[in-house]
Design a protein around this nucleic acid. Sequence first.
DNA 1: TCAACTTGTCTAATGAACTAGACAACTTAG
DNA 2: CTAAGTTGTCTAGTTCATTAGACAAGTTGA
Lengths: 245, 245
Amino acid sequence: MTKVTATSDSHLSGVAIWRRIADAVRLDIVGGKLARGDKLAGEMELAERFGANRHTVRRALQALAAEGVIRTEQGRGSFVDSAKRLSYPIGRRTRFSEGLAGQASELRRQVLGTRLENASASVAAALGLVSGAKVTRLDTVSLADGRPISRATSWVVYRDFPDFAARFAGEQSTTAVFAGLGVSDYVRASTRISARHADAEETALLKLAPGAILLVSEGVDADVNGRPILYGLSRFPADLMELVV
Amino acid sequence: MTKVTATSDSHLSGVAIWRRIADAVRLDIVGGKLARGDKLAGEMELAERFGANRHTVRRALQALAAEGVIRTEQGRGSFVDSAKRLSYPIGRRTRFSEGLAGQASELRRQVLGTRLENASASVAAALGLVSGAKVTRLDTVSLADGRPISRATSWVVYRDFPDFAARFAGEQSTTAVFAGLGVSDYVRASTRISARHADAEETALLKLAPGAILLVSEGVDADVNGRPILYGLSRFPADLMELVV
DNA sequence: TCAACTTGTCTAATGAACTAGACAACTTAG
DNA sequence: CTAAGTTGTCTAGTTCATTAGACAAGTTGA
């Protein structure tokens, strides 16, 4: 378990001690050191381990209980109440549902909306367009067993696929939509991965605790001729997901 | 620029408002929205944008100035004083120095130490050993232009490469060490990527602000026959680095 | 039943975080 | 030079984070 230097520099970090303790304990759980049903150390022992007060530890445990990660019972202790992280595979043939099959019993992609917009500098660069060119934007949230696990935004060149938005309403899968538009196959041309804190909108949509960390995956899909067809920006809660290359 | 809902839920997140503002502004800088030398919005405008007090914004800017990300001048404003994120390539032939060549003028790997230890459950599983088998552990910190950009730990099967630790003292590159041990080529068999907050030791070694986010890359290198030879765990400051697949 | 150990709840005190307002000091454009 | 706009620095008050100690309430095993 990771040690947190408590009192000395909590005011320098801007991150409350109870949150750092909660993060450390959650890491042991989603990282596999503690399995579902395991008993956590007692509040006194945790307080000593982190060099903090028992009340501070209690606040961390309350946050984890509110997230559904642990469950606390008076007189007995706290127990792990969640599973390991899901692994999202990334490769040349990244497909959403195939990769997670077997790790969750129910996968669903929910469309937040589509709209036509002018490509920003970064979107235009990724798709090989001039800045301001028309693109179709698709916003989605994906759920595994009812729990949100990713927030994705995709941009498609409007000139090449004017029907993209309309077709997506009927189909649930990007692969199927492109198949209907004459693109029988596509591959991931490049992927960039970074990490940051979730903003307010992401916190709400992904039902996260405020201040949660996101893994951000940014990539371009290209057809068999290497022409860019889709630019995607996916955000995964780092506590729930890991990316496997 | 990302909006932060300020007063309403700062106490629920455990992350101070000034830190969230600092993170949002830093994200605009390392993400490329603001270039070196650009002028930031004024303190009043930032305060309004984030729904916070000017004093709170000032604290965020002071933190960024202390990190060396911006520079503030009385009567004039604040200016960007740092460059974009470095991109670390990940693929079947991940090599440290090759990938970053051209992005920094000086790359250095510093050996913190080597030691013989018994494989933990996760290390044993990755290398295909029984738990407790002897492995050589190597701890390093890498620097680009004098700035720490990664903290890595590697484990090598002792039985297969008993001289690994000794040889690493002379050579600076893992590739060169394996070449001297008869492994002419090796490839990355698998990579898992996650993200979390830095702990106290990582914060110190990587010279980070407390509470910084790390990208964690975990992978196994295998020789041409597919036999695992090295298990590596690398941690990159998410503000300085992104991973490119 | 009893003793030891667990979590739950209360009071109290200190310091940091945040807000609010005012004014000084500096820079720039007119 | 002047006016407008910028950052720097005070004071003051409220809320939250953290510590400390004490005791209640539930669980477990001897």
